[in-house]
């Protein structure tokens, strides 16, 4: 009967478990993400290819985010132009406003803020939808009908996220630059020719490529993190709510973490 006795872990063991719990959870989380990502990678090559579902997701992630991305892009460009003009005026370099805004938009602001917008709008929606499907056994129902939920639910979302975030980031860049032009040329009366000349002089093809590479990776990461939290949601309404919150929080954290890694890597390369 000794094996049935309740064993109380020692104080040292309990303390060690508590100390390492966050690290263990982080490793588990990364493992779950890697597993889901790998499974989705394998299933995307298997028939049937679900173009209808993919188009729906492209519309959900991309088309439905256009207004939000434009709005945030416009104000980001405008605010950045005002701040840059204010700072650069101190040493008579207002003419650089266009170039500096274009550079920061292309390399950082456009991919990062677009990814955050997509996480907040589409990522939360994905987590809530998948979480609700898990809670109401719709995912189990798919499995019993011999339809892989990973192939049917995750693959189209991952492809849509990976494709649409770079497109939206380009849009963000264009609208943001338009906002900066509006502030710089129309409101602050900077010379239009100089403004555009500084943009073309400072902005390099590599800056745009770096921004696009980031956007592709962020798009994939945000969608994978959002899908993971929804797909493995536990419990009822509370679980779905928790999954949605976690999806957004960890997507944003993931974007900034990846941003540092990619920036370090690409800057060293460049």
């Amino acid at each position: 009967m000794a094996e049935n006795e309740t064993k109380t872990p020692s104080v040292t063991r309990q303390s060690l478990e508590k100390l390492f719990e966050p690290a263990v959870r982080a490793i588990e989380e990364l493992g779950t993400l890697a597993q889901l990502g790998f499974s989705a990678f394998v299933w995307q090559f298997r028939r049937p290819y679900r173009f209808g579902v993919l188009v729906q997701q492209l519309e959900f992630v991309g088309v439905q985010s256009i207004f939000l991305v434009c709005l945030v892009g416009l104000f980001t460009g405008m605010v950045f132009a005002v701040q840059t003009a204010y700072g650069f005026r101190r040493f008579g370099a207002e003419n650089l406003v266009g170039g500096v805004v274009a550079l920061s938009l292309s390399r950082e602001m456009a991919p990062v803020l677009t990814a955050i917008m997509v996480a907040a709008r589409a990522g939360s929606g994905m987590a809530a939808q998948l979480g609700n499907m898990r809670a109401t056994e719709q995912i189990d129902a798919l499995e019993t009908m011999a339809v892989s939920p990973v192939q049917y639910l995750i693959v189209p979302r991952l492809i849509a996220g990976t494709l649409m975030v770079p497109v939206l980031a380009l849009l963000f860049f264009g609208v943001g630059l338009g906002g900066a032009y509006l502030v710089g040329v129309v409101m602050l009366s900077l010379d239009q020719g100089v403004f555009m000349d500084r943009v073309t002089a400072l902005l390099d093809k590599r800056d745009l490529v770096q921004g696009l590479v980031k956007a592709v990776i962020f798009g994939y990461a945000v969608t994978l993190i959002s899908c993971r939290h929804g797909y493995y949601a536990k419990g009822g309404a509370e679980g779905v709510g928790l999954a949605t919150t976690r999806a957004v929080v960890w997507s944003v954290v993931g974007v900034f973490f990846l941003d540092y890694i990619i920036t370090s890597f690409m800057t060293d390369m460049g």
Binding site: N132, T136, E137, Q138, D140, A141
Partner: peptide, 8 residues
């Protein structure tokens, strides 16, 4: 399924 599990 007990709770129908219809695709909503």
């Amino acid at each position: 399924f007990q709770k129908y599990a219809l695709f909503d």
